[in-house]
Design a protein around this nucleic acid. Structure first.
Length: 513
RNA sequence: GAUUCCGUAGCUCAGCUGGUAGAGCAAUACACUUUUAAUGUAUGGGCCCUGGGUUCGAGUCCCAGCGGGAUCACCA
């Protein structure tokens, strides 16, 4: 690849050559033994000074303050930043050879380089805990100038790199120079660890199910299509893993879960990425009431593990994750926010209501979709505090068990938080004959023009015919949950490498021509 | 997919009604042995996203494309 180098890049390459000329390997192979981290020093040095008289530390140079025959620099390791103090006559004790300081340190090192140092910890006149360097070694020469973000004593940052394109495409730089970014991703992992611990302690088994599926089932969405050469068959990237986890319940596991990376070939925006993560779990002999109790306990625990409290600030709202959450049926929700009781209405009456409310509808929409539209437009955004919306119409829940008492409804809930759906759960449909009929209704919907209807998975039906115990299941959108819990406005801020259009068109290789 | 805003130095940004580019940080050079957004002096660095067009003249105006953000549609 041909690339034009900027002035600063040329200079760094020249320095690289000079280092080599001096016999310094800019990319040494041998390990550099580190015996302390920045965080360790900052937390433990005071009161334990004797333990920090011989430290070995490594990090990336983030700034340098050169003062002639001495200098301060800030190194960043994986835990924090640490100031170091380098004095010429300490690292170059010989009277006639000051090259290591005058040439290597002052001329040939740059911001962004990674060095290892040895020395002792002390506190400067200004009161900052620092390492007094007795020896240093270049561990990696950096050839690209690192954008500098400066921060003053009040915590104001200057020249912060905010360009989203730069940040998402070069996340490695974003992570280095914007400490808050790193924290968000550490929090994401904390959330996932909390969930995993919660489920494992409850007796759940983590499993892996196929990502490549010949029938993209378990949800309604446009899939990504690929092709397997050896079998010469089309394969889809999964849009959900639901049907596989239920097969495992048939197979005798009582509680299974999977953090499922799903792929949906649809639009992208602040809350959608083509690949995203859903946690699904299925528990035998439970119903959706048990699932509500479990879900609210889990979310409360996540909030507490992450922030030490249940009340969080999200944007300009305060959200309280303390269990129990409010529960409202979808019909009551609609009645509350529109004044209309749609619970006994037929399709024609529902169309009338939609018209009155000025909602856009079309002929392909069935009864359930009309209800869902009313709820989505008029109600959903109002549920800022965690709320379970329950008891949906049967038509749009083809995998859900019919309600134990209410005709035409299913035992389903969605968890709404901050006006968005975070989780979707059911008492799972385990009647194989009913399930087959529901799939067939989906085919009819598809023929009517609904391009979101489900495919029929005959092997899944076969599994149900062997018998699946009554089961409660849930899917929780992990990315959106992370957005909430870390107060990030965009899904791209909780995905390390969000999907982006390629920077340049890939050059055609000769073979392809 | 639609609408709209944006794209200028490594980074953050100026650049008025069109007259061939500026600042701060970063870089280079010099000074400075406890600084912390270190400081002082000097210097260099730009296919102004790409391609057309209008014009004597385009970073600036028009059109198309590429890339990004926001809003909407679809969805989780």
């Amino acid at each position: 690849m041909l690339q034009e180098l900027s002035e600063q890049e040329e200079i760094r390459r020249t320095k690289l050559a000079e280092l080599k000329k001096l016999g310094i390997n800019p990319y040494p192979a041998e390990e550099f033994k580190v015996n302390v981290t920045a965080q360790d020093i900052k937390e433990n040095y005071v009161g334990n000074e004797d333990n920090y008289k011989n430290v070995s530390f490594a990090g990336r140079i983030m700034s340098v303050r050169d003062m002639g025959k001495a200098a301060f620099a800030v190194l960043q390791d994986s835990t924090d930043r640490m100031q170091i103090y380098v004095r010429r006559d300490d690292i170059c004790p010989a009277e006639d050879d000051k090259q290591l300081y005058d040439v290597v340190w002052k001329k040939l090192l740059d911001i962004g380089d990674i060095i290892g140092i040895e020395g002792y910890v002390f506190t400067t006149k200004m009161g900052e805990i620092s390492i007094h360097v007795t020896n240093f070694k270049l561990l990696c020469k950096s050839l690209k100038p690192l954008p500098i973000v400066k921060t003053d004593a009040e915590g104001n940052s200057f020249d912060e790199v905010t360009d989203p394109e730069f940040r998402y495409r070069q996340r490695y730089v974003d992570l280095l120079i914007n400490p808050k970014v790193k924290k968000t991703f550490e929090q994401r992992t904390t959330i996932i660890n909390t969930i995993r611990t919660f489920l494992n302690e409850g007796g759940a088994l983590e499993v892996d199910t196929p990502v490549l599926q010949s029938i993209p089932g378990g949800a309604t969405a446009r899939p990504f299509l690929t092709h397997h050469n050896a079998l010469d068959i089309p394969l889809y990237l999964r849009i959900a893993n639901e049907l596989y986890l239920k097969r495992l319940i048939v197979g005798g596991f009582d509680w299974v879960y999977e953090f499922s990376r799903n792929f949906r070939n649809e639009g992208m925006d602040r809350t959608h990425n083509p690949e995203f993560t859903i946690l699904e779990f299925y528990v035998a002999y439970r119903d959706y009431f048990w699932m509500m109790n479990t879900t609210e306990k889990l979310l409360e625990k996540i909030a507490v593990d992450l922030h030490g409290k249940t009340e969080l600030t999200v944007g300009d709202k305060t959200i309280n994750f303390a269990a129990p959450f409010k529960r409202v049926t979808i019909f009551d929700a609609i009645k509350e926010h529109t004044g209309v009781d749609v619970s006994k209405m037929n399709e024609a009456e529902l169309r009338g209501v939609c018209k009155q409310l000025h909602l856009e509808i079309d002929d392909t929409m069935g009864k359930a979709k009309l209800i869902d539209t009313i709820f989505g437009e008029k109600c959903e955004g109002n549920y800022i505090q965690p709320t379970f919306i329950t008891d949906y119409p049967v038509e749009m829940s083809p995998l859900t068990k019919k309600h134990r008492t209410e005709e035409g409804l299913v035992e389903r809930f969605e968890l709404m938080i901050n006006g968005k759906e975070i989780a979707n759960a059911y008492s799972e449909l385990n009647d194989p004959i009913d399930q087959r009929a529901r799939f067939e209704e989906q085919v009819e919907l598809m023929e009517r023009g609904d391009d979101e209807a489900m495919f029929i998975d005959y092997d899944f039906l076969r599994a149900l015919e062997y018998g699946m115990p009554p089961t409660a299941g849930i899917g929780i959108g992990i990315d959106r949950l992370c957005m909430l819990m870390t107060n990030q406005p965009s899904i791209q801020d909780v995905l390390l490498f969000p999907t982006m259009r390629p920077e340049a068109k890939a050059e055609l290789t000769p073979q392809e021509n």
